[in-house]
Simulated assay, not measured.
Amino acid sequence: MRVVIAGAGIVGRSIARELLANSHRVLLVDRSPAAMKISSVPDAQWLLADACEISSLDEAELTDCDVVVAATGDDKANLVVSLLAKTEYGVPRTVARVNNPKNEWLFDEAWGVDVAVSTPRLMTALVEEAVSVGELVRLFTFQQSSTSMAEYTLDPASPVVGRTVGGLPLPADAVLVAIVRGDRPIAPTPDDVLEAGDHLMFLSVPDAEAELRSLLGAP
């Protein structure tokens, strides 16, 4: 499968590595010379160009492309890339990154988007599908490292309920990356007070999980 990725930032390069590891062909496109970190993904093809321009997409040979991934940090650019890929080149599959959840309603077939990837929505879906209250659940492990994402739903009896995020003595190798409260993802700050029913999303190494379970009161 040949995949063209618009946006060679951290997200675009990470996607490229995973696809290359699965034996796909990848072209990274970015208009910024600073993004041309070719040595970071040496097996990919690279193109310094503006993916919102028809001439650039011609050069990227989108007519010979199976999937276009719009992974820039600009929602407007991701919409334009998706629309051009679908309407001008007939690309079978387009995947677009949603940076601002408020723009998510735009990312549909009208803009040529087959799949919209929104981090807050993805995290909420993982919580709804895989979580048991009072248990630390490992959702997935990053293939490039031993770091895992785990989720814990706060039981009313948890010793951390009512405490602030800043007051949690987290293990050295564990990071609280998000709180999902109801249907709303929250970027945690030191002053946020934890409530029963909160879904806590952690990044941690396996050795830190036992200490994390003890802190949260998990079995």
Results as ranks from 00 to 15, higher is better:
151 E>F: 15
155 D>N: 09
113 V>K: 00
63 T>E: 13
125 A>Q: 14
146 S>E: 14
45 Q>C: 15
9 G>L: 07
7 G>A: 07
94 T>N: 04
186 I>C: 06
200 L>P: 09
106 L>F: 12
38 I>C: 11
108 D>V: 10
122 L>V: 08
156 P>E: 00
20 L>G: 05
208 A>E: 06
124 T>N: 09
89 Y>Q: 03
24 H>S: 07
145 S>N: 02
13 R>Q: 09
144 Q>F: 09
3 V>N: 05
25 R>M: 13
206 P>K: 05
12 G>E: 04
40 S>L: 15
70 A>Y: 06
113 V>M: 01
108 D>Y: 08
101 P>V: 03
4 V>E: 01
187 A>C: 13
108 D>H: 09
156 P>I: 00
206 P>N: 04
26 V>A: 01
172 A>T: 14
50 D>L: 03
121 R>N: 11
97 R>Q: 10
210 A>V: 13
25 R>I: 11
17 R>Q: 09
44 A>N: 03
24 H>Y: 08
117 V>E: 04
165 V>D: 02
58 D>C: 11
114 D>S: 00
6 A>Q: 06
77 A>V: 09
1 M>C: 09
86 K>H: 09
191 D>S: 13
61 E>D: 12
29 V>A: 05
122 L>S: 12
201 M>N: 12
134 G>K: 02
35 A>S: 12
178 A>E: 06
63 T>M: 12
194 L>P: 04
49 A>R: 08
156 P>G: 01
22 N>Y: 15
29 V>G: 04
64 D>H: 15
112 G>F: 00
38 I>F: 13
36 M>Q: 11
170 L>E: 04
32 S>R: 13
62 L>M: 03
190 P>Y: 06
82 S>K: 01
103 N>A: 05
96 A>D: 07
25 R>H: 14
30 D>R: 08
167 G>S: 14
116 A>S: 05
100 N>T: 11
206 P>M: 04
54 I>E: 14
87 T>P: 08
37 K>T: 13
168 L>Q: 02
162 G>R: 06
57 L>K: 03
120 P>W: 06
55 S>V: 14
77 A>W: 03
